[in-house]
Computed example of a mutant assay.
Amino acid sequence: MTRRGFFKIFAVLGLGAAGGGAAWLQQARAKNPYYAGPRTDHFDGVRFFNPDHPWSKSFGELWRGVWFSDKAEWPDSWPSPYAGARPPARGEGDALRVTMIGHASLLIQTQGLNILVDPVWSERCSPVSFAGPKRANPPGVAFDDLPKIDAVLVTHNHYDHLDVETLSRLAARDAPRVITPLGNGTIMKAHDPKIAAESYDWGARAPLSDRVTVHLTPAYHWSARGVNDRRKALWCGFVIDAGPDNRIYVAGDTALGPGTIFSEIGRAHGPFRLAALPVGAYEPRWFMRDQHANPDDAIAILRAVGAKQAVGMHWGTFQLTAEAIDAPEQALAEARTAAGIAAEDFRALRPGEVWTG
Rank of each mutant, 00 (worst) to 15 (best):
A348W: 06
L107V: 08
H53F: 10
R135G: 13
G243W: 03
L256F: 14
F43Y: 15
F10L: 06
H53R: 08
T155I: 05
K31A: 14
Q109K: 10
M313Q: 13
G60K: 07
C125K: 06
N137M: 06
G60C: 05
S168Y: 02
A142H: 08
V164W: 00
A242C: 03
L349Q: 10
R336W: 00
E344D: 15
E329K: 15
G203V: 05
G140D: 09
A343W: 03
E329L: 08
H314D: 02
I341P: 05
D44C: 12
T155F: 00
L216D: 01
G252W: 08
A196K: 15
P51L: 06
A338T: 13
F272Y: 04
D290S: 11
H221T: 15
P284G: 08
A276H: 09
A348D: 06
A281E: 04
G257S: 13
I325G: 00
G270D: 06
V212H: 04
A333K: 09
G316A: 06
R47Q: 03
F59V: 15
G102I: 07
F49Y: 15
V305H: 07
A136Q: 12
L216T: 02
L153C: 12
P258A: 09
G280R: 03
K31H: 12
G237S: 11
F143H: 05
R173S: 04
A172K: 15
P271M: 01
R177K: 10
N157Y: 00
R135M: 11
I299A: 07
P54Y: 04
R205V: 13
N184A: 05
A348C: 13
A281H: 10
A242R: 07
R350E: 12
D297I: 11
L332Y: 10
F48Q: 08
L116H: 10
R97M: 02
A304M: 01
G21N: 06
E198I: 10
A338H: 08
I115E: 01
Q309Y: 01
G19I: 12
A327T: 14
I341A: 04
A255L: 07
A136L: 13
V98Y: 01
K57M: 03
T317H: 00
T260M: 02
H158I: 14
D118P: 07
E323Y: 04
A268H: 09
G14D: 12
V141D: 07
G37D: 06
R347M: 04
G140K: 08
P351Y: 01
S105A: 14
S223A: 15
V154T: 14
V178R: 05
R285G: 10
A333R: 13
A131R: 08
Q26E: 15
R211A: 14
F7G: 15
Q291L: 11
D144H: 13
A304I: 02
L146F: 00
T254Q: 03
E61Q: 15
Y82N: 11
G312S: 07
P244K: 12
R47C: 02
M288P: 07
P79F: 07
